[in-house]
Simulated assay, not measured.
Amino acid sequence: MAGIGGEATLRGRALDGARTERVVGTTADFGDVLGNLKMAFMGAAEARYGRFALLADLLYLDLENGISTPRDRLYAGGSASVRTTGAGFVAMVRPVDETAWSLDAGAGVRPWWVDTKLRLNPGLAQGRTIGSSVNWTDPVIALRGRVRLSEQVSLTAYGDVGGFGVGSNLTWQVIGSVDWQPDDWLVLRAGWRYLSFDFGNASSSLNLAISGPIIGASFRF
Protein backbone atom coordinates (compact mmCIF):
# COMPACT_ATOMS: atom_id res chain seq x y z
CA MET A 1 0.00 0.00 0.00
CA ALA A 2 2.65 2.44 -1.15
CA GLY A 3 2.64 6.20 -1.38
CA ILE A 4 5.32 8.11 -3.26
CA GLY A 5 6.86 11.55 -2.88
CA GLY A 6 9.84 13.45 -4.15
CA GLU A 7 11.20 15.39 -7.09
CA ALA A 8 12.30 14.61 -10.63
CA THR A 9 14.44 16.95 -12.75
CA LEU A 10 14.46 16.27 -16.50
CA ARG A 11 17.08 17.99 -18.64
CA GLY A 12 17.18 18.37 -22.41
CA ARG A 13 17.34 20.87 -25.26
CA ALA A 14 14.69 23.03 -26.89
CA LEU A 15 14.20 23.24 -30.65
CA ASP A 16 16.51 26.28 -30.79
CA GLY A 17 19.26 24.30 -29.06
CA ALA A 18 18.94 26.01 -25.69
CA ARG A 19 19.28 23.84 -22.62
CA THR A 20 16.03 23.16 -20.78
CA GLU A 21 15.34 21.87 -17.29
CA ARG A 22 11.96 20.85 -15.86
CA VAL A 23 11.50 20.08 -12.19
CA VAL A 24 8.47 18.03 -11.20
CA GLY A 25 7.55 17.54 -7.56
CA THR A 26 4.95 14.99 -6.60
CA THR A 27 3.38 13.70 -3.41
CA ALA A 28 0.75 10.99 -3.53
CA ASP A 29 -0.61 8.89 -0.68
CA PHE A 30 -1.96 5.39 -1.16
CA GLY A 31 -5.42 6.68 -2.09
CA ASP A 32 -3.93 8.89 -4.80
CA VAL A 33 -1.68 6.11 -6.03
CA LEU A 34 -4.53 3.61 -6.14
CA GLY A 35 -6.54 5.98 -8.32
CA ASN A 36 -3.62 6.40 -10.75
CA LEU A 37 -2.02 2.98 -10.43
CA LYS A 38 -1.29 0.91 -13.50
CA MET A 39 0.46 -1.98 -11.79
CA ALA A 40 2.33 -2.77 -8.56
CA PHE A 41 4.11 -5.78 -7.11
CA MET A 42 6.31 -6.52 -4.11
CA GLY A 43 7.77 -9.88 -3.15
CA ALA A 44 10.71 -11.35 -1.28
CA ALA A 45 12.49 -14.68 -0.82
CA GLU A 46 15.14 -15.98 1.59
CA ALA A 47 17.36 -19.05 1.38
CA ARG A 48 19.10 -20.05 4.64
CA TYR A 49 21.77 -22.57 5.56
CA GLY A 50 22.77 -22.50 9.22
CA ARG A 51 24.00 -18.98 10.05
CA PHE A 52 24.15 -17.89 6.40
CA ALA A 53 21.30 -16.50 4.30
CA LEU A 54 20.64 -14.95 0.91
CA LEU A 55 17.84 -12.39 0.65
CA ALA A 56 16.19 -11.30 -2.59
CA ASP A 57 13.32 -8.89 -3.11
CA LEU A 58 11.54 -7.18 -6.00
CA LEU A 59 9.53 -3.95 -6.03
CA TYR A 60 7.60 -2.66 -9.06
CA LEU A 61 5.42 0.47 -9.07
CA ASP A 62 3.91 2.07 -12.17
CA LEU A 63 1.79 5.18 -11.65
CA GLU A 64 0.70 8.38 -13.34
CA ASN A 65 -0.42 11.55 -11.59
CA GLY A 66 -1.94 14.79 -12.89
CA ILE A 67 0.03 18.00 -12.29
CA SER A 68 -0.81 21.71 -12.32
CA THR A 69 1.19 24.31 -14.21
CA PRO A 70 1.99 27.99 -13.42
CA ARG A 71 -0.69 30.60 -13.98
CA ASP A 72 1.04 32.03 -17.05
CA ARG A 73 -1.14 29.59 -19.07
CA LEU A 74 1.86 28.58 -21.12
CA TYR A 75 0.67 25.01 -20.57
CA ALA A 76 -2.77 23.77 -19.54
CA GLY A 77 -1.77 21.25 -16.90
CA GLY A 78 -0.33 17.88 -17.66
CA SER A 79 0.70 14.59 -16.12
CA ALA A 80 3.80 13.00 -14.64
CA SER A 81 4.41 9.26 -14.73
CA VAL A 82 6.99 7.24 -12.82
CA ARG A 83 7.69 3.57 -13.41
CA THR A 84 10.07 2.22 -10.78
CA THR A 85 11.61 -1.24 -10.58
CA GLY A 86 13.99 -2.11 -7.79
CA ALA A 87 15.56 -5.43 -6.83
CA GLY A 88 17.75 -6.37 -3.91
CA PHE A 89 20.23 -9.18 -3.34
CA VAL A 90 21.87 -9.33 0.07
CA ALA A 91 24.08 -12.06 1.60
CA MET A 92 23.86 -12.19 5.40
CA VAL A 93 25.51 -13.96 8.30
CA ARG A 94 24.01 -14.39 11.78
CA PRO A 95 26.59 -13.52 14.49
CA VAL A 96 23.94 -13.63 17.24
CA ASP A 97 21.39 -16.45 17.44
CA GLU A 98 19.77 -16.62 20.86
CA THR A 99 16.39 -18.03 21.82
CA ALA A 100 14.97 -14.58 22.56
CA TRP A 101 16.60 -12.62 19.74
CA SER A 102 18.84 -12.81 16.69
CA LEU A 103 20.93 -10.42 14.59
CA ASP A 104 21.96 -10.69 10.93
CA ALA A 105 24.52 -8.51 9.13
CA GLY A 106 25.43 -8.49 5.46
CA ALA A 107 26.06 -6.70 2.18
CA GLY A 108 24.76 -6.83 -1.36
CA VAL A 109 23.52 -4.84 -4.34
CA ARG A 110 20.29 -3.13 -5.35
CA PRO A 111 19.78 -2.44 -9.07
CA TRP A 112 17.23 0.18 -10.15
CA TRP A 113 15.36 0.90 -13.36
CA VAL A 114 13.38 4.17 -13.40
CA ASP A 115 11.39 5.65 -16.28
CA THR A 116 9.98 9.17 -15.84
CA LYS A 117 7.81 11.08 -18.29
CA LEU A 118 6.37 14.60 -18.12
CA ARG A 119 3.49 15.53 -20.45
CA LEU A 120 2.51 19.21 -20.74
CA ASN A 121 -0.84 19.94 -22.35
CA PRO A 122 -1.05 22.70 -25.01
CA GLY A 123 -1.85 26.19 -23.74
CA LEU A 124 -0.33 29.33 -25.17
CA ALA A 125 2.61 27.13 -26.08
CA GLN A 126 2.60 23.87 -27.97
CA GLY A 127 2.32 20.74 -25.82
CA ARG A 128 5.51 18.93 -24.89
CA THR A 129 6.58 15.54 -23.66
CA ILE A 130 9.89 15.06 -21.85
CA GLY A 131 11.09 11.66 -20.70
CA SER A 132 14.10 10.00 -19.20
CA SER A 133 15.08 6.37 -18.54
CA VAL A 134 17.92 5.60 -16.17
CA ASN A 135 19.29 2.51 -14.48
CA TRP A 136 22.04 1.95 -11.96
CA THR A 137 23.20 -0.47 -9.26
CA ASP A 138 23.85 0.47 -5.64
CA PRO A 139 26.05 -1.41 -3.19
CA VAL A 140 24.32 -1.73 0.20
CA ILE A 141 25.16 -2.85 3.72
CA ALA A 142 22.37 -4.25 5.89
CA LEU A 143 21.31 -5.26 9.40
CA ARG A 144 18.30 -7.27 10.52
CA GLY A 145 17.15 -8.05 14.05
CA ARG A 146 14.38 -10.23 15.42
CA VAL A 147 12.97 -10.23 18.96
CA ARG A 148 10.77 -13.10 20.05
CA LEU A 149 7.91 -12.01 22.29
CA SER A 150 6.24 -15.42 22.62
CA GLU A 151 6.05 -18.78 20.90
CA GLN A 152 4.02 -17.26 18.07
CA VAL A 153 4.69 -13.50 18.10
CA SER A 154 7.91 -11.67 17.23
CA LEU A 155 9.17 -8.28 16.01
CA THR A 156 11.43 -7.87 12.97
CA ALA A 157 13.43 -4.78 11.97
CA TYR A 158 15.51 -4.53 8.79
CA GLY A 159 17.57 -1.62 7.50
CA ASP A 160 20.12 -0.98 4.78
CA VAL A 161 22.05 1.96 3.38
CA GLY A 162 24.07 2.27 0.20
CA GLY A 163 24.83 4.08 -3.01
CA PHE A 164 27.87 5.98 -1.70
CA GLY A 165 28.26 7.69 -5.09
CA VAL A 166 28.91 4.40 -6.87
CA GLY A 167 25.36 4.20 -8.23
CA SER A 168 23.12 6.75 -6.57
CA ASN A 169 24.33 9.39 -4.16
CA LEU A 170 22.43 7.72 -1.33
CA THR A 171 19.78 5.04 -0.90
CA TRP A 172 18.35 3.64 2.31
CA GLN A 173 15.38 1.72 3.58
CA VAL A 174 13.84 0.51 6.82
CA ILE A 175 11.24 -2.22 7.33
CA GLY A 176 9.53 -3.01 10.62
CA SER A 177 6.91 -5.67 11.20
CA VAL A 178 4.97 -7.59 13.81
CA ASP A 179 5.02 -11.30 12.94
CA TRP A 180 2.55 -13.99 13.95
CA GLN A 181 3.41 -17.64 13.32
CA PRO A 182 0.29 -19.82 13.57
CA ASP A 183 2.13 -22.83 12.15
CA ASP A 184 5.70 -23.94 11.39
CA TRP A 185 5.29 -23.25 7.67
CA LEU A 186 3.41 -19.90 7.85
CA VAL A 187 4.21 -16.42 9.19
CA LEU A 188 1.76 -13.52 8.85
CA ARG A 189 3.25 -10.02 8.94
CA ALA A 190 2.05 -6.43 9.30
CA GLY A 191 4.30 -3.38 9.40
CA TRP A 192 5.77 -0.43 7.51
CA ARG A 193 8.34 0.01 4.76
CA TYR A 194 10.21 3.18 3.77
CA LEU A 195 12.55 3.20 0.77
CA SER A 196 14.40 6.23 -0.59
CA PHE A 197 17.02 7.03 -3.22
CA ASP A 198 18.78 10.15 -4.51
CA PHE A 199 20.25 9.74 -8.00
CA GLY A 200 21.57 12.23 -10.54
CA ASN A 201 23.31 12.30 -13.92
CA ALA A 202 23.58 14.61 -16.92
CA SER A 203 20.04 13.92 -18.18
CA SER A 204 18.01 13.68 -14.98
CA SER A 205 17.96 13.85 -11.20
CA LEU A 206 15.62 11.73 -9.08
CA ASN A 207 14.99 12.13 -5.39
CA LEU A 208 12.11 9.80 -4.56
CA ALA A 209 10.75 8.00 -1.51
CA ILE A 210 8.27 5.14 -1.50
CA SER A 211 6.61 4.24 1.79
CA GLY A 212 3.52 2.68 3.27
CA PRO A 213 2.06 -0.11 5.37
CA ILE A 214 2.74 -3.71 4.41
CA ILE A 215 0.59 -6.79 5.00
CA GLY A 216 1.93 -10.13 3.88
CA ALA A 217 2.59 -13.78 4.46
CA SER A 218 5.81 -15.78 4.47
CA PHE A 219 5.75 -19.46 3.52
CA ARG A 220 8.48 -21.74 4.81
CA PHE A 221 9.56 -24.71 2.69
Rank of each mutant, 00 (worst) to 15 (best):
L143F: 01
L155Q: 02
G165I: 15
G176A: 13
V178H: 03
I141N: 02
Q152P: 10
V140K: 01
Q152M: 15
R144P: 07
V166K: 11
S150W: 13
S154W: 14
G162H: 04
I141T: 02
Y158M: 10
D160P: 08
V178G: 12
L188M: 14
R146V: 12
A190G: 12
G165Y: 07
W185G: 13
T156A: 13
G176N: 07
P182V: 00
V147P: 04
Q173A: 09
T171I: 11
G167S: 07
G165S: 15
R189T: 10
G163F: 04
F164K: 08
G145F: 10
E151L: 13
I141M: 00
V140T: 14
V174P: 05
G167Y: 06
S154L: 07
L188H: 01
E151D: 12
Q173L: 06
D179M: 04
G163K: 08
V161G: 02
S154V: 09
T171E: 09
Q181E: 08
L155G: 08
R148G: 14
W185H: 14
T171G: 08
G163H: 03
G162S: 02
D184H: 12
I175S: 07
V174G: 14
V161M: 11
V166H: 15
T171L: 05
D160K: 04
W172N: 11
Q181F: 00
S150L: 07
V187Q: 14
L186H: 03
G163I: 14
V178F: 09
A142M: 01
L186I: 13
D160L: 08
S177F: 06
G162Q: 13
Q152H: 15
L143I: 00
A142E: 00
I141Q: 00
W185E: 09
L155K: 02
R189I: 11
W180H: 06
W185R: 05
S177D: 05
A190W: 06
I141E: 00
R148N: 06
G163E: 01
A157T: 09
L188I: 02
D183W: 04
S150V: 13
S177A: 12
V166P: 11
V147A: 15
W172P: 01
S154A: 11
A142Q: 02
Q181C: 09
L188T: 00
Y158G: 02
L155W: 10
G165F: 13
Y158Q: 01
G167C: 03
W185D: 04
D179W: 09
